[in-house]
Amino acid sequence: MFTTKKHRAWGATALSVTGILLITGCSSGSVSGGEAFSPCIVSDAAGFDDHSFNESALRGITAAADELGVEFSQVESGSENDFQPNVDAQVAEGCDVIVTVGFLLSDVTNAAAAANPDVQFAIVDDALDADGDGAPDVDNGKPILFDTAQAAFLAGYAAAAYSKTGVVGTFGGAQIPPVTLFMDGFVDGVAYYNEANDADVKAVGWNKESQTGVFTGGFEAGIEAKTAAQSLLDQDADVLLPVGGPIYQSAAEAIRDKGGDTALIGVDADVYETDPSVADLLLTSVVKGVDASVNDVIVAASAGEFSNEPYVGTLENDGVGIAPFHDFADRVPADLQQQLDDITAKIIAGEIEVTSQSTPG
């Protein structure tokens, strides 16, 4: 739910290629004044060309390696069966720090960290807290987390402000916390728009209260994702938020097939910049700073400053946010950006509390 300063709660209406595909050295050299430092990264099954968070993580380690003047190793997973052999291969490669990308690598990362205490690990989108005590299970494992509900709240508000049909929708890949976190924030942002503007925009595809909704069962673009998008379009939705890497590409196909003014919202990266093929459809994107956080973890580890303290990106620390409206700037209400700036300030100040059962930290 979200809570205003009046403490009013609102309910909302509601990855194959095989094995090690690529190990690439980028840059050369060693950390100044010390032994060679080797950072490494393993993707989830969406791969590094997902125009989303895997690609963002790769940008982060690339920038860190360039800054440090070292080589790094990247391994791409084609399915969940690749996760363990790929992580094991990076350990055997002699990596000093290994970044794994995605919640689905949680068990593999935790086990590898426990078995290799001299190797440092970081994981995007998981707390490494299988025992549920609120702290990482291993001293050499760092969670990189993002409170995307906060940013998705803004996107939900923007979607409702743009909608001409009075219906907006969201659907996900796998029903896992990093996905439903977006969806919770989105539908609450729609509900807040209704309260603030005496409106009645409906959010379809996800019911926050019951935690039920539309999912494709994975993170691949394809018929499942297109069918999910079409099911929401058939309910008159004219804004879609697909949460799960490349599934947005299938949503874009469904939107183009339908025609009209239906808009798309990207996730993880500013998809307008990462995938120009859908730029004309993008109202905005819910962005999380995966690249910057991965960069920071690598640089800190190279300096002997690795910590397993979780990083949580929020609106306050610029770890999450929404992208510009780009081509839609003249198609949204003239004062919408100012409204979103005001809402952002209230979320940071605690006047609006955006909550989800998947909120990290």
Score class of each variant (00 low, 15 high):
1 M>F: 07
273 E>H: 04
111 A>W: 01
113 A>I: 01
91 V>N: 01
79 S>P: 08
161 A>M: 10
258 K>V: 00
73 S>W: 03
209 E>A: 14
39 P>S: 05
265 I>E: 05
361 G>D: 15
272 Y>F: 15
56 S>V: 03
325 F>W: 13
39 P>R: 08
247 I>E: 07
321 G>H: 14
190 V>P: 07
185 G>D: 04
204 V>W: 06
186 F>H: 13
289 G>A: 15
179 V>C: 08
79 S>M: 02
114 A>R: 06
311 Y>R: 12
237 A>Q: 09
189 G>D: 07
39 P>A: 09
306 F>N: 04
329 A>V: 15
232 L>M: 11
350 G>I: 02
325 F>V: 08
143 P>L: 04
130 A>M: 12
75 V>G: 03
207 N>P: 13
338 Q>K: 15
213 G>S: 14
298 I>N: 10
345 A>R: 14
337 Q>R: 14
65 A>L: 12
125 D>H: 06
27 S>H: 07
239 V>T: 11
31 V>A: 05
38 S>E: 01
108 V>F: 01
161 A>L: 14
20 I>R: 00
125 D>M: 11
107 D>R: 07
47 G>N: 07
181 L>Y: 03
62 T>C: 00
107 D>K: 12
194 N>C: 05
284 T>H: 09
180 T>W: 15
195 E>Q: 10
354 V>P: 13
270 D>R: 10
88 D>S: 04
143 P>V: 09
59 R>N: 05
40 C>R: 04
315 L>R: 06
323 A>I: 01
38 S>P: 00
179 V>G: 08
15 L>R: 06
